[in-house]
């Protein structure tokens, strides 16, 4: 899928594919809201880390003194060698893990004092594309994509319509009933992305989203993320793929031995 053979001259097939679907994607409102539905200040960081440290159990810290802000609409690459703590940092951002110290603020709310009952509302504002996709293999493609809407209590007719529309948007309209095991790596990746964005999240986190696909698909997925970013979604992509980072030239968060070392632009680029 992701075909764009009918692209006009001068427009890459990838970009054409995105453009064709741009209108089809039900873009979310530009005004962001807190989990309680209050309107957020558009200049307030959606994610703020202040001197955050994290350890698993009684082990040593895998993340130390992490501090950064993500403004609404930001696009960041999270880079660093294997074991640097990229996945751990993402886990903190999508509330799968608690920090051992420091302060994490999501959408203006301190996660340390966040009541458990409010966590689902916050999580629904964060879409996650996992490195291993984490699709539920007993559910169909459509049901996997529909999951965030179903757990939010959206009516079944809306769920099906929206999920089908989104799968069509990512080029998987012919695979609605397919189980993940029969899909290729790239197709599973797109299902995972569709699931991550179906709630129209304010923040999209992707852990090595191009790790299981070839370069051609990787580039197309990056266009997809950029397109979502243009619609107002804050995007953070953890990746090893240096060529992708160089090609798409967004700000980076670099992790080295659990510390954020060189926040800023990719080498060789200017702000």
């Amino acid at each position: 899928m992701l075909e764009g053979k009918d692209a006009p001259r001068g427009v890459s097939p990838e970009k054409h594919w995105i453009q064709k679907r741009r209108l089809a994607y039900p873009g979310r409102a530009k005004v962001m809201t807190t989990p309680h539905g209050d309107e957020m200040d558009n200049t307030e960081p959606v994610v703020r880390f202040e001197n955050v440290g994290m350890r698993y159990g009684a082990g040593t810290e895998v993340l130390s003194d992490i501090s950064f802000d993500l403004e609404p609409g930001a696009f960041r690459f999270l880079v660093g060698p294997s074991g640097a703590g990229k996945s751990s940092l993402l886990r903190l951002m999508y509330l799968a893990q608690r920090p051992s110290r420091g302060l994490i603020t999501l959408f203006g709310r301190d996660t340390a004092t966040l009541p458990r009952a409010d966590m689902p509302l916050l999580r629904r504002k964060i879409g996650v594309v996992f490195q291993d996709f984490r699709l539920l293999d007993h559910l169909s493609t459509l049901d996997n994509v529909a999951l965030p809407l179903r757990v939010a209590g959206v009516s079944e007719s809306q769920v099906r319509a929206h999920a089908a529309e989104l799968l069509e948007w990512v080029g998987l309209a012919d695979h609605l009933d397919a189980k993940p095991e029969v899909l290729s790596g790239g197709e599973q990746q797109r299902v995972a992305i569709a699931r991550a964005v179906i709630n129209r999240p304010n923040v999209l986190l992707a852990d090595e989203p191009t790790g299981n696909v070839d370069d051609r698909i990787a580039v197309r997925l990056m266009y997809l993320f950029e397109e979502l970013n243009k619609l107002g979604t804050t995007v953070v992509i953890a990746t090893h793929n240096q060529s992708l980072v160089s090609r798409f030239r967004h700000d980076i968060l670099m992790l080295q031995d659990g510390r954020l070392t060189v926040p800023g632009r990719p080498r060789g680029t200017t702000a």
């Binding site: 509302l121 999580r123 539920l136 999951l147 757990v151 939010a152």
Partner: peptide
């Protein structure tokens, strides 16, 4: 456990 974690991460409440 894995499925439950995914459900949590996509915003499922405990009571769901």
């Amino acid at each position: 456990n894995d499925v439950i974690e995914v459900l949590h991460l996509v915003g499922a409440r405990d009571r769901y």
